[in-house]
């Protein structure tokens, strides 16, 4: 018995030891590029080539990159303005994605819809078509409908997230007993009111996940936003602006690697915080995937 426990203890030490080593290596791997970009944003090295290893452990911190990023005015456009645009765009996309995902998830879970599964499968498979197959036709269609603007972008961003999220929402709603709404509906709420008050609240993790993914997708998209919004510099999103300020859009423009880094930090850190704050919710939302349906 004692031998067994010793063996068990040794095994435990070994197991935990290896775990910690793996975790530490992976943690360094995860953090390094972010640490690198963070430090670069505080350096005065204008380009990649002149960045030295010593810049990763700087003696001096420079704020020129941030100053330039925040004060540059490009014919009426500026980084703060573009961030504001991005926030409006991403916020609206998140709200609409949540509504669409939850309504669809609710319908798939609760309502009696003919050929429900066929429909769901079909919608799901349709999202397998690549962006390259849909990009040109979408642009032409949206141009014809006078939708080459924020409205159009929101419309274009929404389904990708929502279809994926609708599946998770469906699973999540499955696990809420129908009796909750039935009681509410007996109390005089309409089905839609019951949906809003009961389901939205109980499926909060899915709501959070959908909002986050929807926000993320819209906040970070470059290709579509660029083709829709290019002509008006005041309407640019932060992503387009960052590309431009970093000299990636028009190679003839003056490039600055530290400005790119500063922009990355300003765009990335808030999103990162949002992610970490909502990670609990996300974990719970994804755990629906493992749930067993009776």
């Amino acid at each position: 018995m004692k031998g067994l426990s010793l063996k068990y203890k040794l095994f435990k030490i070994l197991r935990l030891g290896i775990s910690y080593i793996v975790l530490i290596i992976m943690a360094i791997f995860s953090v390094f590029p972010l640490y690198y970009v963070f430090m670069t944003s505080f350096s005065n090295a204008p380009n990649l080539i002149s960045l030295g290893v010593s810049d990763l452990f700087p003696k001096h911190i420079y704020f020129i990159a941030y100053k330039e990023l925040l004060t540059t005015n490009l014919y009426g456009g500026s980084f703060p303005l573009w961030v504001r645009n991005s926030l409006i765009l991403a916020g609206s996309t998140a709200v609409i994605s949540v509504l669409l995902a939850l309504i669809t998830g609710y319908a798939l879970s609760r309502l009696d819809i003919p050929a429900k599964k066929t429909l769901a499968t079909f919608i799901y498979i349709v999202t397998f078509f690549p962006y390259t197959a849909t990009a040109v036709p979408l642009y032409l269609l949206f141009a014809k409908m006078h939708l080459l603007n924020y409205m159009g972008l929101i419309l274009a961003y929404t389904p990708g997230t929502s279809i994926f999220a609708a599946f998770i929402a469906k699973l999540s709603i499955d696990s809420i007993p129908p009796s909750y709404e039935e009681i509410a509906m007996i109390d005089g709420l309409s089905r839609f009111q019951a949906f809003l008050r009961i389901i939205m609240r109980l499926a909060l993790p899915v709501v959070a996940l959908t909002a986050l993914l929807g926000f993320d997708g819209a906040y970070l998209d470059f290709a579509l936003a660029y083709s829709f919004l290019l002509p008006n510099v005041k309407q640019w999103t932060a992503t387009i602006g960052l590309y431009y300020l970093a000299g990636l859009l028009n190679p003839a423009s003056a490039p600055a690697y530290n400005i790119f880094a500063a922009g990355s930090v300003l765009m990335g850190i808030p999103l990162m915080i949002l992610f970490i704050v909502s990670q609990r919710m996300m974990t719970r939302a994804y755990s629906n995937l493992a749930g067993v349906k009776q």
Partner: peptide, 24 residues
């Protein structure tokens, strides 16, 4: 004159826009 700055040369953006009748 409504100017769009920051366009690269040789861009396909012009073609896509032209296809939709939205070229500058």
């Amino acid at each position: 004159v409504e100017v769009t700055y920051g366009v690269g040369v040789g861009t396909s953006q012009f073609e896509t826009a032209a296809k939709a009748g939205k070229a500058p």
